[in-house]
Structures are given as C-alpha cells and as structure tokens.
C-alpha cells in the first residue's frame, strides 16, 4: 500500500514537472497542445474511492495551473475528468473485479480496451479544456481544430508513455 502511494506521488511530481517544463512549451502548428499530465488520472487504480479520485484530480490540475498562470482552468477540467473516470472506464470494462491489477494499463485491460479508454479520456479532457479556456473568445473552427489536433497529439504521447511503462515492467520480470 505504502509502495503504491509512493510510486503515485512520484508519478504526480514527475508528470507535473514534465508538463510545465517541456510540454507547456510545445504548440504544434499553432493548434496542437500536449496535455500529458492527465496520464496520472488515467492511471489511478480503479479501486480508488471517488472522493479521493476527485481530490487527486483537483490537486494535479491546480499544481499545473500554478505553473502555467491559468488559475483554476486545469483544476476544473481535472475535477470533471476525475469524476467521469469511473463511468467512462465501465464503458469498456463492465466488471472491474475481472482485472488482475487495479491499475489500468496495456497489460491489465488488454491493448484494444486500453487504447479505447485512453482515447475517450483524452477527447473528454481536450473538449472540456478548450471550451473552458476559450470562453467565447475564439470562433468555432479554431476551437474544433484545437480540440482535434490537441487530442491526437496528447493521445499519441499518452500511448507512448503507457507503452514505456508496460515495457519497463515486463523487462524487470525477466
């Protein structure tokens, strides 16, 4: 239990630092923004109580906000994403008891299910994020383009991250 807690604390810190020092400065073609730190919310064990999910989601959003001068923006979006995590996960894995490991990964749910789950989470986050961020400031085309491009970029990076994580684990076992 303590080991899980520590590894997630480390994941929290590493993801926030990576987001604010590297990914916040990437803005491909003026539309695609990678929001990679939501990997934390995606990877929290499915057995996490909802109140804890919401609290951790809010905290990681707030941490990224403080660094990015977007007070409240990511905190709000992460709270929403954390709240929607369980219903969205159940779309693809109706019986959580079937999982060997409560942490969603390529291994525990299978590649196809995991891909669908990550894609859904990314889309939901990007839609909420850019709608709240624009607040009626940009036109619909720009908004749609930003959501689509950022979703694709974020999704690709998240899958790469998940790939590295599962490769690491299988490497250790040998």
């Amino acid at each position: 239990m303590a080991k899980t807690f520590l590894s997630f604390l480390l994941l929290f810190v590493v993801l926030v630092l990576a987001q604010v020092t590297i990914f916040n400065h990437i803005w491909l073609f003026g539309v695609a923004m990678p929001l990679v730190f939501i990997f934390f919310i995606i990877s929290l064990p499915v057995t996490t109580p909802t109140n804890w999910m919401l609290t951790l989601g809010f905290l990681i959003g707030l941490a990224v906000d403080i660094f990015s001068n977007t007070a409240g923006l990511n905190a709000l979006c992460c709270t929403i994403l954390a709240g929607l995590r369980r219903p969205l996960f159940r779309l693809y894995v109706p019986r959580e008891e079937d999982l060997i490991n409560p942490v969603p990964s390529i291994k525990s749910t299978g590649g196809a299910t995991y891909t669908k789950y990550v894609l859904t989470m990314t889309l939901v986050y990007c839609i909420v994020y850019f709608i709240v961020d624009s607040a009626g400031f940009f036109n619909a085309t720009t908004l749609a383009l930003r959501i689509a491009a950022s979703s694709v970029l974020t999704f690709l990076l998240l899958m790469a991250l998940a790939g590295i994580a599962s490769w690491n684990k299988s490497g250790k076992k040998k």
């Binding site: 609290t55 007070a71 409240g72 905190a75 709240v132």
Partner: peptide, 19 residues
C-alpha cells in the same frame, strides 16, 4: 451523496479561481 458534494466543492473552488 458525498462524491457529488466533493465534486461540487472542487468545481466551485476552481470556478472561483478561474472567474
């Protein structure tokens, strides 16, 4: 309904910071 209460609290706090 505690998850809803917690959700409303965090969402409210975020909106306060945001707006």
């Amino acid at each position: 309904y505690s998850p809803w209460v917690v959700f409303a609290f965090y969402a409210g706090l975020s909106c306060y910071l945001l707006y």
